[in-house]
Design a protein around this nucleic acid. Structure first.
Lengths: 218, 218
DNA sequence: ACATTAATCCAACGACTGATGGATAATGGC
DNA sequence: GCCATTATCCATCAGTCGTTGGATTAATGT
């Protein structure tokens, strides 16, 4: 149909500032709207109005509404995945240097995660909304959640075998940690200032990562 | 308008089984649909079809769609609050009996919470959907979240002063715990069988509650 | 027996939805 | 300078939405 080929040129009446193509602008405002209100509460005309273009232009650049939603989702999580994998690589490199270095590496990793989500709350919003769609559950788990969880779980296991902490159920631990972070971000959205809350949450997560419910066991 | 007065009688054609009034049936199926698909993705005609009645009957019993949604929400969380407050009362009574009893009481409290949400996943779904609505954030926090968080946070503080655990930031701890449980329930919805997952999550939460990131501190 | 009240359904309205065909304008390659 | 290509907008369609007025049926109070 339309917009199937790459935009090699950019003709058309240049009524808009040309710093960046229209498609990027549409994706950006659509991501914000979808995160705020959800898929069904956002009309294509809302996206068009927020982007300053016509409805047909939105459809022209992004196809179906479902395709637009998927594009927003993929863009947001590609960014998250990139940041997290880079941080995980650094942590993995620091693990063999002994427990203190491993502990610092895990702290850095989780800080990167928290920072990222605090800076981009739409990531948390889209993530949670996807988890609430049963028919997308399997895809979301396989393509997004499982790899990231596995990544961090492997780090936790490696840190445990390096003596940095004791970790009986890495999968559940990681998932609980991730949801706690999402809850933190959602709470921050209600009280945007909360610098003290941010600081205290980081301390909480660090404590959580340390020996924590460590050597004692059940 | 309609249905403003209490249904003191129940006339009308009795085409439906009379075990329970129609309004209850509508609220039940509407709760399930809203939890599964969200407010905007559920049409009143969907609710009517699922309940086996006409659209006008739904409106007659529950008023506006927003009022129907609020009614579902209030009913679900009244049940949760009732169960939780009873369990908290038991825990509060067991606190003065010393650290071992306090520890068991906290385990029981969190088990009640996990059991409740596992048995009624629609509670978690509605809860998360409300958190994603910015304009309802304040109301949700003040009327539902804050009292429950305060309840458990007081228990944690009391347990700490009783020597059962060390707890620097009760509010963040409780919120993280709650979100971890919700994440557990959401994950269970994807893999409904997971008896092993349920068992391991309970162990995780118990470990979390125990000395945990306890005496070590930051 | 009758009047009242409530429950239910049918039909419809206006508004909005996502999607699309076609006209217009402006660009880049030739 | 011309042509193919692309972007953009306008107008519109068929469908669905939440809501409501009115007719029908039945149970209750007296």
């Amino acid at each position: 149909m339309a917009a199937m080929t790459m935009p090699r040129r950019r003709p058309g009446r240049p009524r808009r500032e040309e710093t960046r193509p229209t498609r990027e602008l549409v994706l950006t405002v659509a991501t914000r709207l979808f995160a705020e209100r959800g898929f069904d509460a956002v009309g294509l005309r809302d996206v068009a109005a927020a982007a300053g273009v016509d409805v047909a232009t939105v459809s022209h650049h992004t196809g179906t509404k479902a395709q637009l939603y998927d594009a927003c989702f993929a863009r947001v999580f590609a960014a998250e995945r990139e940041v997290l994998e880079a941080a995980a690589e650094r942590a993995r490199a620091a693990l063999p240097a002994g427990p203190p270095a491993a502990r610092r590496a895990l702290h850095d990793l989780v800080d990167v995660f928290v920072d990222f989500l605090e800076d981009r709350p739409e990531t948390t919003a889209l993530w949670l909304r996807r988890w609430l769609e049963p028919h997308r559950h399997a895809e979301l788990d396989e393509r997004y959640a499982a790899p990231l969880y596995r990544l961090v779980a492997e780090l936790l296991t490696a840190a445990a075998s390096a003596g940095a902490l004791v970790e009986p159920t890495p999968h559940i631990t990681v998932r609980s940690l991730v949801w706690a972070v999402h809850g933190h971000v959602v709470a921050l959205a209600a009280a945007p200032s909360g610098a003290r809350e941010r600081r205290e949450f980081r301390m909480f997560v660090h404590r959580f990562l340390d020996g924590l419910y460590g050597p004692a066991g059940s």
